[in-house]
Simulated assay, not measured.
Amino acid sequence: MLTGMLSIWALSYIDYFGRVPVLPNGNDNTAFLFAVILAGMALSAAGIARMLNHGKSHPEVIEAPGEAKSDD
């Protein structure tokens, strides 16, 4: 949910930059910088969520330390 919110927020900044590249006072629009920061935060949130919710684990496949597989 956080990743989606940050992504939509970043896209809104990119949209604003596309519509208004130069602000009315003559300064350059720096909304793309905020969009890049928010996109980075979205990627970080997705990575953290992936680490915390890693899915099913299969303990029957994992070997004990020092235990060798034998084909006997």
Rank of each mutant, 00 (worst) to 15 (best):
E63I: 02
V36C: 08
T30E: 12
F34K: 11
S57H: 00
G4V: 09
A35M: 06
G26M: 03
V22C: 03
S7I: 04
S57P: 01
D28N: 09
L43G: 11
R50C: 06
I62Q: 02
R19Y: 07
A10G: 08
L11I: 09
G47E: 00
N29S: 11
G26W: 01
P24V: 01
I8F: 11
G47R: 02
Y16T: 10
G55E: 01
A64V: 07
F17R: 14
M41R: 09
N29Q: 07
G66Y: 08
E67G: 04
Y13W: 10
A10C: 03
G40N: 11
L11P: 04
F32H: 08
D28H: 07
L11Q: 15
G26E: 01
M41N: 10
D72A: 11
D15E: 08
Y16S: 13
R19K: 15
P21E: 05
A31G: 01
K69H: 12
V61R: 06
L43I: 08
I62A: 03
G40Y: 04
D72E: 11
Y13S: 10
G26S: 05
P65W: 06
P65C: 04
P59A: 11
E63L: 09
R19P: 04
Y13I: 00
I8L: 15
G18A: 15
V22S: 07
A68C: 06
K56P: 00
S57Y: 01
H54Q: 05
A35Q: 12
P65D: 09
V36D: 09
E67V: 11
P65R: 11
R19Q: 12
S12G: 15
V61E: 06
L6W: 02
P21C: 11
P65M: 07
F34C: 09
H54D: 04
E67L: 07
L11N: 08
S12T: 14
F17K: 15
P65Y: 10
H58Q: 03
L11R: 14
